[in-house]
Write a protein that binds this DNA or RNA. Structure first.
Lengths: 187, 187
DNA sequence: ATAGAATGTCTCATATCTGAGAAATATGAC
DNA sequence: GTCATATTTCTCAGATATGAGACATTCTAT
């Protein structure tokens, strides 16, 4: 029998999936997805905010570690760009939900908040890579770094949806995503 | 003074914006966005489902009319493809929320349901245009129609986010979107 | 200025969500 | 098998969301 995943983590993962699609979903929904009782959920998490914080932490850590590893492994901007896309796709919902949380209109992004500074540290690796590409003249003239950043998250979203819908072969998803992204922004 | 928008429509539009980001958001939130009292909202809509139905109707109509107009105006698949992207970007949140509703895992898509058949009628124009491009050999070999469909909605999402964030010049958004999409999938 | 319609204010009953106690049951290590 | 721990089940009180009645206020057209 496969090793049972830690219940707390299982609930957190379920919450990430649920809250990403429906931020105000009742905790009952999260519990169902995690295959536990709502009562059990409350044993691990004081309240909704506590659970949210755990989600946040998991997402930060997952993104930080994946993006960080790519950044450390590759030094050429182009290689970094490609593998950061793959890393983001691997992080999947964790990537897009974290991004959503820090970029919605109600969120006040402040450097004092540890969550925000952690987020910045990770995503600045993404942004600076794009700027490096621009400085090297590898980006199609006219396209701005801001657009490319938006496009990246859009393509990651596409990859996640393709994965969920199951109508694009799993091995192809990353290949297609990189093809569309690279052709779509590089000279 | 500008003509005051019909209250019912104002509430519906607010609901589309709110529910797209937070499906289970309290109606109070929608009322605030629409700048009315919750009491007024309830004068126009029997309950949450009634409001949801109105949102659905507005989104269907907006997408049907925009996509339909493009389909009628252009006959070349490539022109259709380009202008459908622009139409989708113009529909903005209405496009992506409608798409989300009909493609989430809980939704049972059935042809009997009028909403579903209306949705299909509209979005099949999108899909068939992609297939036409493929048959004409204009799509990069290997890329599947399903991927391209996902990519389109991803790029529309990117355009919406760029619009919201305001960090990409408005006139550039459609230009960039079409550039990235066309280079990303066409031979 | 005034009637009629639309909206706001205050209030309330009901429904659903939330968080937690207590005891029963399942699970896993030894 | 026994014990310790984790989880479920049942329960309940408080919080929040929902839907609507009654009346006051504002707006609009004439």
């Amino acid at each position: 029998m496969a090793v049972m995943k830690d219940t707390k983590q299982k609930i957190t993962d379920a919450a990430i999936a649920i809250f990403n699609e429906d931020f105000s979903a009742p905790l009952e929904t999260v519990a169902e997805k995690a295959e536990v009782t709502r009562r059990t959920l409350h044993r691990y998490f004081k309240d909704r905010n506590d659970l949210l914080a755990a989600c946040h932490h998991t997402m930060q850590e997952s993104c930080r570690s994946s993006i960080g590893a790519v950044y450390a492994t590759y030094t050429e901007p182009l290689e970094r760009f490609e593998h950061m896309l793959y890393a983001a796709i691997d992080c999947g919902v964790k990537f897009s939900f974290l991004h959503k949380l820090h970029n919605n209109e109600h969120h006040n992004h402040s450097e004092v908040d540890k969550n925000c500074s952690d987020y910045d540290r990770t995503f600045n690796k993404f942004k600076s890579t794009i700027e490096d590409l621009q400085n090297k003249g590898l980006i199609t003239g006219g396209l701005t770094a801001e657009w490319i950043e938006m496009l990246c998250t859009g393509i990651v979203t596409a990859a996640i949806n393709a994965e969920k819908a199951g109508n694009v072969a799993r091995i192809n998803i990353k290949k297609f995503a990189w093809y569309s992204l690279s052709k779509g922004v590089l000279v």
